[in-house]
Measured scan of single mutants.
Amino acid sequence: MASQGTKRSYEQMETDGERQNATEIRASVGKMIDGIGRFYIQMCTELKLSDYEGRLIQNSLTIERMVLSAFDERRNKYLEEHPSAGKDPKKTGGPIYKRVDRKWMRELVLYDKEEIRRIWRQANNGDDATAGLTHMMIWHSNLNDTTYQRTRALVRTGMDPRMCSLMQGSTLPRRSGAAGAAVKGVGTMVMELIRMIKRGINDRNFWRGENGRKTRSAYERMCNILKGKFQTAAQRAMMDQVRESRNPGNAEIEDLIFLARSALILRGSVAHKSCLPACVYGPAVASGYDFEKEGYSLVGIDPFKLLQNSQVYSLIRPNENPAHKSQLVWMACNSAAFEDLRVLSFIRGTKVSPRGKLSTRGVQIASNENMDAMESSTLELRSRYWAIRTRSGGNTNQQRASAGQISVQPAFSVQRNLPFDKPTIMAAFTGNTEGRTSDMRAEIIRMMEGAKPEEMSFQGRGVFELSDERAANPIVPSFDMSNEGSYFFGDNAEEYDN
């Protein structure tokens, strides 16, 4: 993207840094990872977990959730003011799984939030270390993106479920800051804005008074975040219109849905970061690795190297396929839920299948599930090659597409044709070009129609051997075009429920 120079890199967003050079960025990201790792080690000690239990991804998720809940100030305040039966607002906890007599047992633990905050700050040299908290939120978000298709949420806001490739980060909490905003897809931002506008339509006082002023500035800020994701002048001009509207209503909703559809071809720039579970960072720190000293990046080879040398386990339900569970977590670790499966298959070195073909449910185990038949197995999170994460949407291309997802959002900077089903997408653009945004709409449609099938995206960008740390010898991959490109292809993934 041309304006790259004016933006802070995501590592800076990730670490609240002012302008830093590459070495400083690597050190501050490393410091953040160190903090998460030290916190995780301490929690495993508190909970008396064995090494194996500490490497269980379900335990990692519970521990991450506990610290996120302990620092969720708004919710904590709300819980104190609106006490609900049987919930102690000062405590947080969740299921911890232990191996007892050759069987997995679930144990519900409860801790004072104050105590968890103390352990977290102690692991982070006394700081609140917001960057580390956001990092864990993005890992949870990436896992949700890989596990669930947001059909219901899309339909509720009037969008087409086939636009799911635009929904990265749709389950990120509001408090995820600049680093969170960077990884949100165009569809996620559109959905947040539509929800806001709908509230304004239904509630006369939404934009009024002292609160209304705050609401208005939040609305304009979200519009600017979305505008910054678009790469064409016409899309940005249309966002200006939406932002400046005196009284946002149905016309703005129409414009936003139009823009979301246009992003299936004229893709937005959305950041991709490899955020790993805390149970990967903990053992690495415990083994003596100093992330701050060595430096770390979320968008280069580092996460690949770390996963190459990590042992992570997962509980497996009786009829689940461990290899499929591994694929789910591998995609989440690489922030690749909406990437082209052919690119992923090449990088991973084994075939990556669409969601609907995987015999696996989510990673988390519900409290009512029976533990008797639970097994555990090693997650295979290694890769054959590594590639640089991208934040450009890439230019655009036609490809055989599917009944489910009709476009992709690249996660890796790797040369390819970008699949999208042009006739299906263009069919949504018939007729409606009147109104105050008509010239911009016409211009956007013209650009979409001009998108050429034979153009290559990320020209000359390749993948790298894991021994090639400096990215000196790019390998331009070859793809098996007979395979499906979309992950949520004609899909039956479970729906995400809060």
Rank of each mutant, 00 (worst) to 15 (best):
E320C: 07
T15H: 14
K184L: 07
E115A: 11
Q122L: 13
I475E: 00
Y281T: 10
N319F: 04
K48M: 11
G268P: 11
A401P: 08
M447W: 05
I475M: 13
T390W: 01
G185A: 12
A271F: 10
T188P: 07
N334H: 15
I116R: 02
S377Q: 00
G249T: 04
P89T: 03
V408L: 12
S69R: 03
A286P: 03
V363M: 09
S269R: 02
C279I: 08
M66F: 14
R221V: 03
A233V: 07
V352F: 05
T378N: 07
G249D: 05
G393L: 02
E375M: 03
A271W: 08
G435A: 08
A2Q: 00
W330Y: 10
V343I: 15
E107A: 12
Q12G: 00
K98F: 04
E11H: 08
L133Q: 06
K98G: 01
A403S: 13
R436F: 04
F230E: 13
R416Y: 01
K452R: 14
G200Y: 07
V329C: 10
S335K: 02
S383H: 02
R416Q: 09
S274D: 05
A260V: 15
L276T: 04
L298V: 05
Y111A: 01
Q231H: 14
A337Q: 08
V280W: 05
A284E: 01
N202D: 02
A251N: 07
M191K: 09
T134E: 03
T92Q: 06
A27W: 02
R221K: 15
V343R: 00
Q405Y: 03
R199W: 08
N205W: 06
P423A: 11
R74Y: 02
S353T: 12
A472S: 12
R8G: 04
L466W: 15
A471V: 03
L166W: 01
N319R: 15
M32G: 06
E294D: 12
V285E: 10
Q241K: 08
P277F: 06
Y313P: 07
H82F: 15
I96F: 10
L466Q: 13
S478P: 09
Y219S: 09
N492L: 02
S274I: 07
E53T: 09
T215W: 01
I225S: 12
G169E: 13
R246Q: 12
S310R: 00
G37M: 07
V109S: 06
L226R: 07
S50C: 14
D372C: 08
Y289D: 07
N144I: 13
E81L: 08
D88F: 01
S310D: 00
D101P: 14
R384H: 13
A442E: 03
Q399E: 01
A131Q: 09
M222K: 08
N224S: 10
Q364M: 15
C164K: 09
S367N: 14
A493D: 00
W386V: 08
L276P: 12
T146V: 08
E210D: 15
A472I: 00
E80V: 13
A472H: 13
Q122M: 09
A85R: 13
N498M: 13
L315V: 08
R102S: 10
L381M: 13
S402G: 01
P318A: 12
G209H: 10
N59S: 04
F304D: 01
G450D: 11
I197E: 00
N319T: 14
D88W: 00
R26N: 00
K91T: 00
G17L: 01
L68K: 07
T232A: 08
T23Y: 06
R118G: 06
R261D: 09
K198A: 08
N473V: 03
M167T: 09
N432A: 14
M331G: 04
T390C: 09
T433E: 11
K452S: 08
A471F: 00
E18N: 10
C164M: 15
R199L: 05
P477G: 00
I33P: 02
G187Y: 10
C223N: 08
D112I: 07
F489P: 01
P423W: 00
A271N: 08
R416G: 06
H135Y: 09
P453G: 14
A123V: 12
T62D: 01
S245H: 01
R436S: 06
P423C: 06
E64D: 12
G431A: 10
A284V: 13
V280E: 08
N202P: 01
M371V: 14
Q149E: 05
K214T: 03
G282V: 07
R162E: 07
L466Y: 15
F258T: 02
S482W: 00
N498Q: 07
F230H: 04
K229Q: 12
K103A: 14
R382Y: 07
V183E: 10
I33C: 14
R118P: 06
A181H: 14
A471W: 01
S310W: 01
L193I: 12
E73R: 06
K198N: 12
T378Q: 06
E369D: 08
Y313F: 13
N124M: 10
T147V: 12
A323W: 00
R195L: 08
R55L: 13
F304I: 15
T378F: 03
I201C: 12
F71L: 10
S438V: 11
Y385R: 13
Y219V: 04
P95N: 08
K90E: 07
D128P: 09
D203G: 04
Q459W: 09
D468V: 02
A493Y: 13
T130D: 01
T396D: 00
Y10F: 13
F346C: 14
E484Y: 00
F206S: 08
G169V: 09
M163F: 15
E107F: 04
A442Q: 00
T45L: 13
L358E: 06
W120S: 06
S217D: 00
S478K: 11
Y385K: 00
R175I: 01
L108F: 08
P95C: 11
R121A: 12
V312A: 11
V363H: 01
R436V: 03
L166I: 14
I406P: 02
E11P: 01
S28W: 00
R199M: 12
I425M: 06
L172N: 04
A179Y: 02
Q327W: 03
C44E: 11
I225F: 12
K98Y: 01
D302V: 05
E495V: 14
Y289L: 14
F291P: 04
S345R: 05
A237Q: 12
R216Y: 07
S69V: 03
R243W: 02
R221T: 03
Y40W: 12
P83H: 10
L172M: 12
D491L: 03
H82Q: 15
A218G: 05
K198T: 07
E81R: 05
R382T: 00
T433F: 13
A284M: 14
F206N: 08
A123K: 02
E469L: 10
S217I: 13
S353D: 00
D439A: 00
M238E: 09
T396W: 12
S28I: 00
P303I: 10
P410D: 00
N142L: 07
Y10G: 01
V285P: 08
G485S: 10
L47R: 12
G180F: 11
G86V: 00
A85N: 14
L358G: 04
V270H: 12
K422C: 09
R391H: 01
F464V: 03
T171M: 14
S486W: 02
H82T: 10
N59M: 08
R156C: 06
Q122F: 12
G295I: 10
A179G: 11
E380T: 02
E18W: 04
G300S: 14
R236A: 03
G490L: 06
